[in-house]
Design a binder for these strands. Structure first.
Length: 105
DNA sequence: CATATGACGTCAA
DNA sequence: TTTGACGCCATAT
């Protein structure tokens, strides 16, 4: 098993275009079902340097976790470009959530 | 009341 | 000094 951070990064990079994942889902796939916070931290700190599709990561509610209206609008635009319908800053998890059941080593 | 989620902060190399 | 790794707690459902 590789480090949690590395696993998380790999998972995020594996999210297909037009699909999204939640923090809990990513954390669970990475090996730590309770490490949703870490996922958030990774995105905040390493997304820009690792070219991660951060816009494909949303919270369990299907909402954009950003507080800044600018960032939320930006992410919404990015998601819409991938064909994801964002209604009131909300995304239909049932339609776009990517089921990550890949056995990472 | 109990369970699940979270765009953080801090420490070490 | 900067980048990578790790966990407890508060809030919402």
């Amino acid at each position: 098993m590789k480090p949690f951070t590395e696993q998380t990064l790999s998972i995020i990079q594996r999210i297909p275009s037009g699909h999204i994942m939640t923090y809990g889902q990513i954390a669970k796939c990475a090996g730590n079902p309770r490490a949703a916070r870490q996922v958030a931290r990774i995105l905040h700190s390493m997304s820009e340097k690792h070219q991660l599709p951060w816009h494909r990561v949303v919270n369990a509610k299907g909402n954009i976790s950003f507080q800044d209206a600018n960032r939320r609008k930006e992410q919404r635009t990015l998601l819409e470009q991938e064909g994801i319908a964002v209604i009131n800053g909300r995304i239909s998890l049932e339609e776009y959530q990517f089921c990550c059941e890949i056995p990472f080593e």
